[in-house]
Design a protein around this nucleic acid. Structure first.
Lengths: 200, 200
DNA sequence: AACTTGTTGCGCAATTACATA
DNA sequence: ATATGTAATTGCGCAACAAGT
């Protein structure tokens, strides 16, 4: 389990810039765009649960239509849906499989550097897929939130920027006014020497 | 052709905040996150073109195989793998359904509000798919660039912010110094009246 | 109205990042 | 320190829409 902080940081982490696959081939994922946020305000709780695949297997052609028909639209956060149905199914789904889980014992003969290839019909395969699907949804959700956060940050910074500029404007005005009130010229000069070049 | 500027703007365009499907149901895509950049530095030219698959081949299965058979591989990313089995399953799967999917092949009678459904085997279907795939790649590319741009903007704003704060610091210092040099108290007071409340 | 392009959520598969035996 | 398993990322294609012509 372990819930310790991952290493990647939300914004601008370059992250394996020249990543190559272990076999030396160019990796399929050559993009990455360096967006790997973390520490996002997300309650890692029950969301992302079993997604719909009630009977997931034959999975007709696309599931999407299925999901929608079942009203399972996955509203990232808040507003949570009232997933009336579907959860039952998914829940049970898990259980159903759990008992069959771990068929490998029989044929455990696979070469060291070889990762076992699962049959697409196998329960295990489906379980892995489903888990990954959940992870994918979670990850993308996180990415979306990060983007939004970044955008908010821009607005916020622009705002602050504006405030600062106004402040500068006022201060500049003050300085001018004060200089104007200085009785002796030499003092002004002295003052300017002290202040240096503010007007950049 | 017309290459005029689209309406959406890159950052923070709210854009259908309460979007609902025409039928009043909640739209599947309720996300959108208001990211709809435009005017991105993209040469809209030959990129995203036909995906020049010189000899695209046995990519895997899963429809993709079709694309390759037709010479549609789209190299942009990938170097594709060489998986193996499984093509049978998904392929057949698709076909199985496809025959049920579109009952009216020869008959062109489709009700007013009904969009014709193409056979997954049809050339037309493949062409549409391929066009959409290109559009998708293009769109995502745009989104990626927008995100990067936004991130850059944050850095840039942070930097400017810092500069402004330094400037304020110097100006404040100047004001203090000048005030110190003011010979008479009443002048200071007067000055403050003029300047108003700078210290917010 | 019909068609084309643009967006977006989703699932898949390959890869990577972590964690742990 | 290494082998192995799981979670996280990411490009890709699909389908449903939205938007634009």
């Amino acid at each position: 389990m372990s819930n310790n902080p991952p290493s990647s940081i939300c914004m601008f982490t370059p992250q394996n810039p020249t990543s190559l696959s272990p076999d030396g081939t160019l990796p399929v994922n050559s993009d990455s765009s360096g967006l790997t946020l973390n520490q996002m305000p997300q309650m890692d709780g029950g969301l992302y649960s079993q997604s719909t695949g009630p009977q997931g297997f034959p999975k007709t052609q696309d599931t999407r239509s299925m999901e929608q028909m079942m009203g399972f639209t996955y509203p990232p956060y808040s507003t949570c849906l009232t997933s009336s149905n579907t959860e039952r199914a998914s829940q049970q789904n898990q259980q159903d499989y759990s008992q069959f889980l771990l068929p490998p014992p029989a044929s455990t003969l696979r070469l060291p550097g070889q990762k076992r290839s699962l049959s697409k019909d196998s329960i295990e395969y489906r379980l892995r897929r489903e888990r990954n699907n959940i992870a994918v949804r979670k990850s993308r959700d996180k990415a979306r939130r990060c983007v939004q956060l970044t955008q908010q940050r821009v607005l916020q910074l622009q705002d602050e920027n504006h405030r600062l500029q106004l402040h500068i404007q006022r201060l500049s005005h003050d300085v001018d006014a004060l200089r104007h009130y200085l009785p002796q010229r030499h003092l002004q000069v002295k003052e300017q020497d002290i202040a240096g070049k503010d007007n950049c």
